[in-house]
Amino acid sequence: MKHTLSVVVENQPGVLTRVATLFRRRGYNIDSLTVGRTENPNISRMTIVVDGDDVIIEQVTKQLHKLVEILKIYDITEEPTVDRELALVKVRADSQIRGEIMQIVEVFRARIVDIGRNSLIIEATGDENKINAIEDSLRPFGILELVRTGKVAMLRGAK
């Protein structure tokens, strides 16, 4: 099962390497990993999606805790969260089918951010399922390039 870990770390060079090395070394599978600064410039937050059973997740969490620069780890899989992912999709689009693509874009409340002669770039934001759905809908037109950020997440409420 996929677990989402929200990991608060000191914003120092090498932290990402330490985390990545730990996952590689112990053979855990990172589904996605995002990292960025928080409201405090000395602190970064990583959102790590890991695939594994409870035993593996427990080990991942305990091993992460041993890294000196890691401050806090929350498993937010079961918690009420807001989570988002952003995707950019370059799709083949000649003039005849642009209208159809634009309809899909509208349904998903995505945006067209670039128009080329035979292609469009679409920006979509949402949870993982929504991004999967828009990807599936655009595939028949021919996806030329696709990039996804991976998930960022935040607990709901005051916590």
């Binding site: 080990q59 305990k62 091993q63 805790h65």
Partner: peptide, 8 residues
């Protein structure tokens, strides 16, 4: 002393 050894 190492919690990660428990159940590893």
């Amino acid at each position: 002393i190492d919690a990660a050894e428990i159940g590893k």
